[in-house]
Design a binder for these strands. Structure first.
Length: 490
RNA sequence: GGUACCGUGGCCGAGUGGCUAGGCAGUGGUCUGCAAAACCAUGUACAGCGGUUCGACUCCGCUCGGUACCUCCA
């Protein structure tokens, strides 16, 4: 696989040429959602970021196994006793089963991802389905002496580990600093050092999901699932591990530590981290209660939203910023993205109708090269999109008769736009109402436009405009072009 | 407090030691019955103060402002 792809590796803090361990295969693991709430903009960012990575690697010819987990263990707490009726014992069926919550939100997450045109990962394992593997990991770490048992729980011994390995190499943290600065948490007295993290936690009454283990009835530590499932499906060392920057510490740092403690080497070659999305300059998060769910964006039903924004607008908005930059949400920015994307989609439609000339008056050969150069530079989608806009202009000029393209060039540019816009960037034309999926509607529209056309011929502007206005109320827009009227759904 | 990162024109957002980013909005024009779309033209941007340099928005230092992580979080 010959490529010039460079990826920014958080571990080395530099862009490195991408060389898979076992070409043409690539293993990629991305931290997925914790399914106890609806997905919000913050979930869309990593999903779309790594969807681009997945799509692009596949386009380059790699056989990618993309693993994205579902976290369904460890964070689910029973808050039913905060409800109004905590006196009477509820019937078994009236209590929400944890797995019911998991199923409900997993389904909703999947629907949102499909709406965003995010490809399904190759494997989507759940933490609860890999308890045995996680227990095995804890055993090995204990055997190797990098963990200790305390009151039925097992903790990772960071101090011991630091004598043989470097804890903090991913996040740039030093154990001395951690010692001074880690905040006090409940249950710290069980640990040797307060920065030691749990590998196995004995059940406390709040946790409703628990499993038997050699140490206690309990549940696995926060960082274990990714170590266990990554190794199981991608091998002890794999190519790419992705996630949000907020997971860098302690989550990914601890994954590295667990892998070394267990197997004596790092688990991952390239660590990739997407940046956060902010709202009014502040990160969105559960604790800040300032997040807008994807469903709210799609429906427009939220006090901060001026209007509804389609899934593709959200996708395009995210792709217009580099994945390692923060991106600030605002209605104005989203509206700009909406119009910009429409322009690009229009171009794809325009290309289909271009008239070929004998010769091309302009050179379109650099499009491919420029687009790939941008993508190869650490997936620089904003630059890639800027190039598409440049060529969009050329195509419109051809359409206006100001430039010409030969049939060969038209075919070439059409095929490139299809690949770039739809296959790699993963956009989708949401306005397509034609295309044979609904011939009745097509026929009806054809008839209506015919009537309007005749009215226009007779200079009966009132009728022509009335048809356009009435259709507009049905969210169908009419455009008069020199080749006749066109219609599209909004 | 510790550790990072960031501060670009009305808005969003790339990038670079000297060469037009791009999108949206605005303004003027072309086209059109009107509208929309499109095209053409149009903006002395890079937080502040010093320093390095022939030359810095880009490198260094300081100041101010902002954000994130250190706790479940994408």
């Amino acid at each position: 696989m010959d490529n010039n792809l460079h990826i920014y590796n958080t571990l080395s803090k530099t862009k490195e040429r991408f060389e898979p361990i076992m070409p043409p295969h690539v293993g990629m693991y991305v931290c997925g959602p914790t399914v106890y709430g609806d997905a919000h903009l913050g979930h869309a960012r990593p999903a779309i970021t790594f969807d681009i990575v997945f799509r692009y690697l596949k386009y380059l010819g790699y056989k990618v196994r993309y693993v994205r987990n579902i976290t369904d263990v460890g964070h689910l707490e029973n808050d039913a006793d905060e409800g109004e009726d905590k006196i009477g014992k509820k019937a078994r069926l009236e209590e929400l089963e944890p797995m019911e919550v998991v199923k409900y939100f997993t389904d909703r997450y999947h629907i949102n991802m499909d709406q965003l045109n995010v490809l399904h990962p190759s494997i989507e394992p759940t933490a609860s389905g890999h308890i045995i593997e996680q227990i095995e990991l804890v055993k090995q770490i204990l055997d190797n002496g990098y963990a200790y048992e305390s009151e039925g729980s097992v903790y990772f011994d960071v101090e011991k580990y630091s004598k043989d390995y470097k804890y903090g190499k991913l996040s740039g943290r030093k154990t001395e600093d951690l010692l001074k600065n880690t905040r006090a948490l409940s249950g710290q007295d069980e640990k040797k050092n307060n920065f030691d993290f749990a590998l196995w936690k004995k059940t406390d009454p709040k946790h409703i999901m628990h499993w038997p283990s050699p140490w206690s009835e309990g549940y696995p530590g926060w960082h274990l699932e990714c170590s266990a499932m990554g190794a199981k499906y991608l091998g002890e060392t794999f190519d790419i591990h992705g996630g949000g920057m907020d997971l860098l510490f302690p989550h990914h740092e601890s994954e590295i530590a667990q892998s070394n403690a267990c197997r004596g080497h790092d688990p991952v070659r390239y660590w990739m981290h997407n940046n956060m999305i902010t709202i009014n300059g502040q990160k969105m998060g559960k604790s800040l209660n300032n997040f807008i769910t994807l469903n709210e964006f799609f429906s427009g039903e939220h006090s901060s939203l001026d209007q509804a924004y389609s899934p593709m607008t959200i996708r395009f908005f995210i792709l217009q910023a580099h994945y390692r930059s923060t991106v600030d949400f605002s209605n104005e920015a989203l509206k700009a993205a909406e119009k910009g994307m429409q322009k690009l989609i229009n171009t794809v439609e325009v290309i289909k109708k271009l008239n070929a000339s004998e010769k091309s008056s302009t050179d379109i050969s650099s499009l491919k090269e420029k687009f790939f150069a941008a993508m190869n530079d650490d997936f620089n989608t904003p630059i890639a999109i800027a190039h598409l806009f440049d060529f969009s202009k050329v195509i419109n000029q051809v359409n206006d008769g100001k430039e010409t393209l030969s049939q060969v060039d038209i075919d070439r540019v059409k095929s490139l736009f299809d690949i770039f816009v739809f296959d790699i960037l993963g956009l989708r034309n949401e306005n397509v109402a034609t295309g044979g999926d609904d011939t009745l509607v097509d026929d009806l529209m054809h008839t209506i436009l015919e009537i309007r056309h005749n009215a226009k011929k007779n200079k009966d502007w009132a009728t022509a405009d009335s048809i356009r206005d009435e259709l507009g109320k049905l969210n169908i827009s009419i455009k008069d072009t020199k080749d006749g009227a066109e219609w599209s759904r909004e």
